[in-house]
Nucleic acid binder design. Structure first.
Lengths: 212, 212
DNA sequence: GCTTGATTTAAACGAACGTTTGAATTATTA
DNA sequence: TAATAATTCAAACGTTCGTTTAAATCAAGC
């Protein structure tokens, strides 16, 4: 990182993450952010120029390391496997685990970051969508290749569909885990990372392997 | 329906749906809505009292019939099956089909409604969440029971998790189909209802049946 | 055709928003 | 310590928001 993170800048980013995840983009004002961060209102414009730029900075802080971790895991798996294809379960693990490990660490955004991701996908703000979709599309391409090697009987389009299903299954499960908690009467909760990971991977691997 | 729908009211609801789906909740102003609907600004407060009430009315118009259709389909399947459990594929069909048929009909909201649903889940607006979660939780309970009858080897909590995975797979696939379209280079698209339905059901049924 | 109620209209309200400004303060360097 | 740059601060800017008001227009019943 070329840029040393200023204390004020950091406080603003953390407050933004906290409030946007709780109230959404539009309903979070700069006045609320600066009050929560304990800094002056004008500090946002001084350090980030504009509100949109602040939100982009907030997203980039989390998004970039996440996808880099995913690709690094996949790279290592492919190196380990040599000429053999990486098993489906391991591909899914590389895709899902970094997100869950992020959730487990509140200092890295915790569950809040998932709310933000869900917001980015849902809220069609013109300045967010290209960023998210581009990051997602690039990452997906690599995992699509790995999946086709693991399951050569899947056609190209079929593999795209199923990867989309698998990612949706995972993303919805963790991003909207409150819905599950509610409908299960509190019996299903997102606590242990390994347990959840195993459950989702079992489900998705079976779906991916299913004969067309 | 006890209430005959006024022309102005209807125009406002349609415009709201159109604009909120495109720009999100916070970024859609009453002025933009009334301009799009071709009615006076004050008409919103006259017919719906407040902006929040308008949004709730917009959501209820689509949400209620959707979940009623799902439950009606499940009821019919259970009646047809008699004492035997309803097959997994048919349960999923009853859960997913009404949404896809809604998408196919632009007069009933089309794909717009899915954007709205995704927004409701993501945007933590205090007045929306209880409505969505309550509707979802109630509907889910019925389908959970049907699933446990179809797959008695699944434990209670395991069935909850897997139903959550299956629904997430479907919802993400259709609500954020643009992501798939982008990452597949336009080769995967949400056109034919039956084809998509078959793909998702195949994927989810295999995941649901997978041995724990 | 006048009356009564429902609806539409133009105009204004106060509040909250993102952003800008210029002076005050703090940190840095010589 | 003096000079220079970086940061913070209180205050205000113009705009837009949701909502309200009171008059104007429309519809229907007797």
């Amino acid at each position: 990182m070329a840029e040393q993170l200023h204390a004020t800048k950091l406080a603003i980013l953390n407050a933004t993450e906290r409030l946007v995840a709780r109230h959404g983009f539009g309903a979070t004002s700069l006045r609320a952010i600066t009050a929560d961060a304990g800094v002056n209102l004008a500090a946002v414009n001084y350090h980030f120029a504009t509100k949109d730029a602040l939100i982009l900075a907030m997203l980039n802080r989390r998004m970039k390391p996440l996808n880099e971790t995913r690709l690094a895991l996949l790279n290592r798996l492919e190196a380990e496997a040599g000429d053999a294809p990486v098993p489906v379960e391991k591909i899914l693990d590389a895709l899902f685990r970094p997100v869950l490990e992020l959730i487990a660490r509140p200092s890295k955004g915790g569950r809040r970051f998932l709310r933000l991701l869900a917001l980015c996908l849902a809220e069609p703000g013109a300045y967010l969508k290209p960023l998210v979709q581009k990051e997602f599309a690039e990452k997906t391409r690599r995992f699509h290749r790995a999946l086709r090697r693991a399951l050569p009987e899947l056609s190209d389009v079929e593999a795209h569909w199923r990867l989309h299903f698998a990612y949706g299954s995972f993303f919805h499960a963790v991003a909207h885990s409150q819905v599950l908690e509610l409908s299960s009467g509190g019996r299903c909760r997102l606590t242990n990372v390994e347990t959840v990971l195993k459950r989702i991977i079992t489900f998705c691997a079976a779906g991916l392997r299913s004969p067309a």
